[in-house]
């Protein structure tokens, strides 16, 4: 891609965007800590409306701030691949959901974009794909922040070489999935009383029958399902990107610069990225 298509990156314009990204990240972390540390007593009785409001606004607002901070910094080559990732997420996730599977498979597009275009593009793809999916399936909406986190972590994993060897991908998927499951569980509990597909609810029911609190049971289920889900997703994405023609990979500065796919990434470039595809 020619550098004439990248946007100007004056430091004055970058600072407020970094601030937005930092604010969004801080809001998501604060929301999670609030839900887990301050609120667990409320689950035993009924739902506190404060908890569900905080989870809705904290995670959605954090996701929106992240997208607002990230989008202006992305190059056109990253932007055109984001709708593709979003459409893949929704199309495959919808199928997996309607089959009642224990895993979701709704992050294939996010991880794909993160591997090719970097953590920032991955995070924005995750958040936006859940926001758009909300138009067809409103239950996807509150999980936008979790999806952004998956994209961010997948991009960071790719940057540090998790996709250079096929056996590293499932390991990265395990770690990313465990973190994603931790973040998604309070959203599911406080918004919908942990309702999910029959597959995921069967797992929660097992933990509940052992006497676990709902948040604990949902977190255990999230750790289980999300880890398995992300292992599968990371392996699928790794196998897909290995099968891509070099020409298709080489159009992404992120994949080229950080040699995301090892020897398959195309020619080596010595200088670091132009700063556009890196997360602030």
């Amino acid at each position: 891609m020619s550098s004439s298509l990248t946007l100007s990156t004056e430091p004055t314009a970058q600072r407020p965007r970094r601030l937005l990204v930092a604010l969004g990240g801080a809001l998501i972390v604060a929301t999670y800590l609030f839900l887990v540390i301050v609120q667990p007593a409320e689950i035993a009785g009924g739902m506190g409306s404060v908890a569900s409001l905080v989870s809705l606004f904290g995670f959605l607002g954090g996701g929106a701030l992240l997208v607002g901070g990230i989008l202006p910094t992305l190059t056109t080559s990253s932007l055109v691949v984001m709708p593709l990732g979003i459409a893949l997420n929704i199309a495959i996730g919808q199928i997996a959901g309607s089959l009642g599977m224990q895993i979701y498979l709704d992050a294939i597009g996010t991880v794909l974009v993160a591997v090719l275009a970097g953590p920032a593009a991955g995070a924005a793809t995750g958040a936006l794909s859940n926001a758009i999916w909300g138009l067809f399936n409103p239950f996807a909406l509150p999980f936008a922040a979790g999806a952004a986190l998956i994209g961010l972590l997948a991009g960071l994993a790719a940057k540090h070489g998790a996709f250079r060897r096929v056996y590293l991908a499932p390991l990265a998927g395990l770690v990313v999935g465990a973190i994603g499951g931790l973040v998604a569980a309070p959203v599911a509990v406080f918004m919908f009383g942990a309702a999910g597909t029959f597959g995921t609810n069967a797992i929660i029911a097992v933990f509940r029958s052992m006497g676990d609190k709902l948040l604990v049971a949902a977190t255990k289920q999230g750790l289980l399902s999300d880890s398995v889900d992300k292992i599968v997703v990371f392996v699928v994405v790794a196998l897909i990107v290995y099968a891509l023609p070099q020409r298709a990979v080489r159009q992404f500065p992120f994949a080229r610069t950080y040699r995301v796919l090892g020897a398959r990434s195309g020619e080596r470039t010595a200088q670091p990225a132009a700063g556009n595809d890196r997360v602030a």
Binding site: S2, L5, T6, V80, V81, A87, V236, L239, A243, Q251
Partner: peptide, 30 residues
Amino acid sequence: ALLTVTTPLVIGLLVDASERNHMLGARGFS
């Protein structure tokens, strides 16, 4: 089975995306 469907799907979509990239660039998207 998932891979035999998604791999050609993604390759085709990426080729489309790279064409769109050039077209958007030529039309002053940035």
